[in-house]
Structure formats: C-alpha cells, structure tokens
C-alpha cells in the first residue's frame, strides 16, 4: 500500500502537476482539480504501471487519494505492493 500510495503521489505531482503539499490521503481527485478525463488518464497510467485491471468506469471525481491507492492494492498479488521498495 505504501509503495502504491507513494507512486500515486509521484504521478499526481509529475504528470498532473498537482502541488505535493495539497496531496493528503483524504483529498478527493476533484479537490486536486483533476477533471474527468484526467482521472481516466490517471487510471490508465496506474494500470500500466502496476499491471492491474482497473475499470475506467469506476473512476470518479469523489474518490480520495487513499481510495484510489486501495483500489490498486486490492488487485495486486500479496507482497507486490511494495515491489518498488518504497519505505513502509
């Protein structure tokens, strides 16, 4: 989960130019000013990186950063969530 969350923060800051200080686990994607297409793009990016199936029609503006990270983590085989070696 920590690696997924950290990667998500990196994607949000690098690709979507979200200010890192605004990103908190309980912040919604809409709150981070991602529009509907940006949210789908985020899902596509996460699917590619983690190799997991995420349904784009499940993407929604009211999802929080933590909920998105959980959706990815739930699809990962046990132990894979920390494969990037990020600190727990």
């Amino acid at each position: 989960m920590a690696a997924v969350y950290d990667h998500l923060v990196t994607v949000l800051t690098d690709k979507f130019e979200v200010d890192a200080e605004e990103i908190r686990p309980d912040m919604t994607l809409a709150g981070l000013e991602l529009d509907s297409l940006a949210i789908v793009e985020l899902y596509v990016t996460l699917q590619e990186h983690w190799g997991v199936p995420l349904a784009e029609d499940d993407s929604a503006a009211d999802l929080t950063v933590e909920q998105v990270a959980q959706a990815v983590t739930a699809q990962l085989p046990a132990g894979d969530a920390d494969r990037d070696g990020a600190p727990r």
Binding site: L37, V44, D57, S59
Partner: peptide, 12 residues
C-alpha cells in the same frame, strides 16, 4: 459513446 471507457481503450 461511453466516454471514460472509450478513453482508456483508445489510449491503450
């Protein structure tokens, strides 16, 4: 057209 799913499919 189901826009969100089409976006993902189109990109991939």
């Amino acid at each position: 057209m189901r826009g969100r799913e089409v976006y993902g499919q189109a990109v991939r």
